[in-house]
């Protein structure tokens, strides 16, 4: 890591984001729960390591409670990291404050899950898009121009007509484009998109996804796409990181993962994705019943209680990610 930092000072490193053993633990329940011997710590993210190269699109895939959203928030310094480190462009995020933070905020952006909630209902679209510009001290005379350009970028037709409207006058698809425009208006390098289409109607999802792909390619963005839906991740990301209970299970090229998942959890996940084709046959799911409990994860491998191929070693020892071909897999089978 130190080598990377030093390199960053002289020459732009190939790696934009570097996560090393990142942890995010929450305290839940009170002293009474602790007295009754219940675990009071939820390990939302528990020792995650990965690098993201410049211009790369990475999908963070997993079920609810797997830590994918927490990981995204850590990457944007919206949560304080409990342990480990995250370097953005060579700088360690936990040491970024005030001025540096302001600069970081203009470089790293978030696209929200729920566009109906992500825009202040009292603000017009113009006011909404002006906010990041004001914070970046962009003179008033240049703002209008930038706002129009950002709205054109996200393919909102005739952007000028939207400027004085309020959010409730826009459809979900249009709102999500405004949310994207706000994220992109300062030309960031890095964007985290947290399930950006899950709240939208099915007929307009494709439009938003296409804009996302198009903008990313045009601006050369480095992107994280958080989702529980492998089909969507596959549509926008070349690389996928599969998470389960705060840990990485598998990390590799999306196509490889879709075609031949290696980790038993990924196998179940891929098999479970429904296909919009009634003629498709389905195999039974290779997974046990039950649900992950983030408060009391099993010892050793966190997936072992649902894993069809779990054995003695899985309970005793936490599997470390190991390279298997083009991928990293955290499983004792490999």
């Amino acid at each position: 890591m130190t080598i990377l930092t030093k390199m960053g000072a002289t020459k732009k490193s190939d790696v934009l984001v570097s996560v090393h053993d990142a942890k995010l633990h929450y305290q839940v329940g009170g002293a009474f729960a602790a007295m009754r011997g219940k675990s009071t710590v939820v390990k939302a993210v528990d020792g995650v390591t990965f690098d993201i190269r410049r211009g790369e699109s990475v999908g963070l895939l997993g079920e609810s409670g797997c830590g994918k959203t927490s990981m995204g928030r850590l990457l944007l310094k919206l949560e304080d990291i409990t342990g480990g480190s995250i370097h953005f462009d060579g700088e360690e995020l936990s040491k970024v404050h005030r001025k540096g933070l302001k600069k970081f905020r203009s470089k790293a952006q978030l696209i929200f899950q729920n566009p109906f909630d992500a825009i202040n209902p009292r603000f017009t679209i113009r006011q909404t898009l002006s906010e990041p510009l004001e914070n970046a001290d962009i003179p008033r005379s240049e703002r209008e121009d930038l706002i129009i350009k950002a709205l054109e970028l996200v393919k909102l037709p005739e952007p000028a007509q939207f400027l004085d409207r309020y959010p409730h006058q826009l459809s979900g698809g249009q709102l999500q484009r405004v949310v994207m425009a706000r994220a992109l208006i300062l030309q960031p390098e890095f964007v985290v998109a947290d399930e950006p289409v899950s709240m939208l109607d099915v007929s307009v999802r494709a439009g938003v996804l296409n804009v996302f792909r198009d903008v990313r390619d045009r601006l050369g963005l480095t992107a994280i796409y958080i989702s529980h839906d492998l089909a969507l991740v596959r549509y926008v990301c070349e690389r996928t990181i599969v998470m389960y209970l705060g840990r990485i299970m598998e990390d590799g090229p999306t196509e490889d993962i879709v075609r031949e998942p290696l980790h038993p959890y990924t196998k179940a996940l891929v098999a479970a994705v429904p296909v919009p084709n009634p003629d498709q046959s389905h195999d039974p799911l290779p997974i046990g019943r039950g649900a992950p409990d983030p408060r009391n994860p099993p010892s050793g491998c966190v997936f072992r209680d649902r894993c069809p191929s779990a054995h003695a070693r899985c309970a005793a020892e936490v599997p470390q990610p190991r390279p298997v071909g083009s991928r990293l897999v955290a499983c004792h089978l490999f």
Partner: peptide, 27 residues
């Protein structure tokens, strides 16, 4: 409308290069 929906859904079993086509506008 059903024809449009068909194009708007990603299909995990389909080809990787497939492009999704939205139905423009809103209900």
């Amino acid at each position: 409308y059903s024809m449009g929906l068909r194009n708007a859904f990603p299909d995990l079993q389909g080809a990787a290069s497939g492009i999704l086509t939205p139905i423009e506008g809103a209900p």
